[in-house]
Design a protein around this nucleic acid. Structure first.
Lengths: 247, 247
DNA sequence: CGCTATCTTGACGCGAGTCAATAGTGGTGG
DNA sequence: CCACCACTATTGACTCGCGTCAAGATAGCG
């Protein structure tokens, strides 16, 4: 299996930011993650229960139905959240990039397979420890709640896309969101990386690989994007793409 | 405008449950809502900032884009969460029935129109007050987080339905979820009430009214359901419906 | 009793899925 | 180093399910 090349954004935290001891000392995503805006006391408590985990491309972090014992912050690389139905239908609920929090769920077992799309580094917390810290440090729990609500908003937006947009519109929407996410993570410019194969895009947007391919070709021939490499998209006409998914 | 008749479930809290003073004293949904499993102190604090709000059928509780100043618990009736795009496309993100919590969002403005489907009673809390109480009473905030995560799970399940199921499967899935929700709220039996018009079902499932109608007819002619009234469905073959959306 | 809005049913066309063939890409071993 | 292989992506031809348009049925309300 050949995996898309993914040069994970090399994040630089804002200068002057007080850095605690421990594994978090060199964390590149603190300004994006739930760890931001915590007091030193809170940071240290979090630090004490945090562990680092490394995944190679294709490695499985969790399987649908397994007991949910940890939650994670992605510090490098990329993950996909996959749900498989009994008859083989596949849905990619989302992708997690550096700064994203993984594992929020109301259920005691994982609702998705979580798989690495590239070499990925994670910050791991036990769910028990996290629950304890949440009660002890309400600001931390407030962060988690905020994160969950943001995820909820974006899940509902994805529902709109799946229910009411045509394939080309979904594709444009997806590219713009990916561009925004990578811009937020520090990757400036119009060139965005696609850390996932076409099949994942298809299963994320409720399409087939063929349709994804056709849509990309279509957008290119309309001059809205360029495809310098298979796993790289250059956005040529930002406004044109936005006009497509006029929401 | 004629609205579907909706006999909101008459909920009976478990006996022996300690009842606080104030508006919450007679609340019928405490055992379902975020208010459950709180200490007396927490209950009283919540009580102090709670207000009751009544809505007639069709009344608008909030509009997309408006500042989000309150969150709500539905105590009676039914709401729909509607998102409208600039070009008129409509998506019903979900329905809120008694016990459901409304208003969780990461954004400072409402992401949906919130409209009453029937005579509806709500318990209202200011977002500021709720944030304050959340920090003061970590168990309450933990409840909120749990609720948000549950909503997230179900939003992601809806994504699967929208992306990968055919219209009949979506309809079966929808009916089963509605039945489960009404069973949880105390309405036993196979007869379930549809508090919303067909157009809302269509916009929830990413279909057209015509397709919704045809699917219902199809399920009836296959002997899986009966349609004694326009706004009422009787589930005749539970297993048969579940076999359709074999997830 | 008729008006209006909703729901149901029917006929038709198109867009996206399916199937199939070709092109590209990366990895491996001779 | 290059030939081969496995896998992924692209492109094309065809089919059919669901949306669209239109008509009729049903129900609530003045």
């Amino acid at each position: 299996m050949a995996w898309p090349p993914f040069d994970s954004p090399c994040l630089t935290p804002p200068p002057g930011d007080a850095v605690p001891l421990g594994p978090c000392a060199h964390c590149q995503v603190r300004h994006l993650a739930i760890c931001s805006a915590l007091t030193h006391e809170e940071m240290h408590a979090l630090d004490a229960v945090a562990g680092v985990q490394l995944l190679g491309p294709g490695a499985v972090l969790a399987r649908q139905g397994e007991p949910r014992k940890h939650v994670f912050t992605v510090t490098r690389g990329a993950l996909r959240l996959v749900r498989l139905s009994a008859d083989g239908r596949r849905q990619v609920a989302g992708f997690a990039l550096p700064g994203d929090f993984v594992g929020l769920s109301g259920a005691p077992v994982h609702q998705h397979d979580v798989e690495a799309l590239a070499e990925t580094e994670l910050c791991r917390f036990g769910t028990d420890a996290m629950a304890r810290l949440g009660v002890q440090f309400p600001q931390l729990q407030a962060k988690l709640l905020e994160r969950a609500c943001t995820e909820l908003d974006s899940a509902r937006e994805q529902m709109m896309a799946l229910a009411r947009m045509n394939p080309t519109e979904r594709m444009a929407d997806f590219l713009l969101k990916l561009a925004a996410q990578q811009a937020r993570a520090g990757n400036a410019g119009r060139s965005i990386s696609l850390p996932m194969p076409r099949a994942d895009i298809a299963d994320h947007l409720g399409l087939t690989v063929e349709t994804v391919s056709r849509c990309l070709t279509g957008l290119r021939s309309r001059g809205l994007i360029a495809l310098p490499e298979t796993y790289r998209v250059e956005i040529l006409d930002f406004a044109g793409l936005e006009a497509l998914n006029a929401a």
